[in-house]
Design a protein around this nucleic acid. Structure first.
Lengths: 222, 222
DNA sequence: CGGCATCCGGGAAGATACTG
DNA sequence: CAGTATCTTCCCGGATGCCG
């Protein structure tokens, strides 16, 4: 056993062999919405060292989770992107997040990356609460733009021109998380200047209530 | 940051903080079908040291994933059991296994624990293929007995008296995996003495075809 | 800017031995 | 059986420096 592996026929154990190392799953999370460059990855993973990021990218490439691709000129830089199979890990990553959302040890209010907020919306979206709704919402979160479509009880969020939405939301990802998950009133964030809106504010308020968090599980040592 | 944590508000990152350490998820897998004692756990996790198992159990208890409980006399020994929330991780663990089942690096034929085989059946069960089937199957896998019920396109497997099934299967878990996943003909395993059957063999053969594996994802370096 | 190479300290993992 | 104690090894994380 050279590369410290569980020698176990179980598929879950195999998953841990290939994506169980520190940072691996978070790197995949950061690539879930599209390819990124080395420094973008590094910027969205607070605390990882360049060294380790290199190692992980090599490891994940060697097991066919992601590939390294050269952008056409004039960009000419390298990007990392998930393979199709790598992309399929979204279900698993969401299920992990859904489970952990009930953790009694989860501390709210910590910083999140743009990608984690978007993925958390995809995870916690409650179709029943969205019945009858039909609209699009543009989001400008820092450098990135997203377009969200809610119709027929379905949610889609992808990169796209934010200005094309029925409503436009401009803020940073933590402000969005604060109102969707933290219950901070939208008006307060607008007054603070943390959030800017163009369009129907009521639509946005309804949007924010579509992502209820589950109850926290009992803490055995509280 | 004492205990090496991702300082990330993302629920998936939090999950890694609490169950991302080596062995943690496999310990949970081993407790998924019911409480176990220290040495049973150790026996079903080939390669873990007593040392580390102690640490992990303490860690998982401290985050309310499992609890330590003293059995009533005359047993009077300690067992470890998942909390309700810990049990809810089954969906996540299955989703991880389902994803990894497509890995191009998965080597078939490795040893599996009894619990992993049972959980893999729960994971890979295909409801469409079970339409119209209605029977029970008892399984005696080493020391453990299970009763499986298939009806209305649903599968249930739990600990229970194997002899009460319409069919009884006696074998070790690797033989079961070999025929269900490895495509080894039942007859061959019977001839080898690896499997014993009491009851309708055809029923068992149909059972074995209810758990198709997904296609393997492309290997970038093949 | 976008990495790769190297070194170094600390801590986690693994092996072995031992105890109640 | 159910763990401790000890020791070694290896991985992680940080810093620095090199190179295209």
């Amino acid at each position: 056993m050279k590369k410290r592996e569980y020698n176990d026929g179980c598929a879950t154990a195999h998953a841990l062999d290939i994506v169980g190392e520190r940072w691996a799953l978070l790197i995949m999370r950061e690539l879930m919405l599209g390819p990124k460059r080395f420094s973008d990855l590094r910027a969205s993973l607070p605390g990882i060292s360049a060294n380790l990021l290199t190692q992980r990218l090599e490891g994940l490439e060697s097991v066919s989770v992601l590939r390294r691709r050269k952008l056409p000129p004039p960009a000419a830089s390298w990007v990392y992107e998930l393979t199709e199979w790598g992309l399929e890990s979204e279900k698993m990553i969401k299920e992990i997040g859904r489970w952990a959302a009930r953790s009694p040890n989860m501390v709210p209010g910590k910083q999140m990356s743009v990608n984690s907020v978007i993925l958390s919306l995809r995870t916690m979206f409650n179709a029943d609460l969205a019945e009858g709704l039909d609209f699009t919402l543009g989001m400008r979160l820092g450098e990135q733009e997203f377009i969200t479509r809610i119709s027929q009880g379905m949610l889609e969020i992808d990169h796209g021109e934010a200005s094309r939405g029925d409503v436009l939301l401009i803020c940073d990802q933590n402000a969005l998380a604060a109102t969707v998950y933290g219950g901070v009133p939208l008006d307060q964030l607008i007054d603070d200047g943390a959030i800017q809106i163009k369009g129907d504010k009521n639509l946005l308020e309804r949007f924010c209530r579509l992502f209820p968090l589950p109850d926290t599980a009992p803490d055995l040592h509280s």
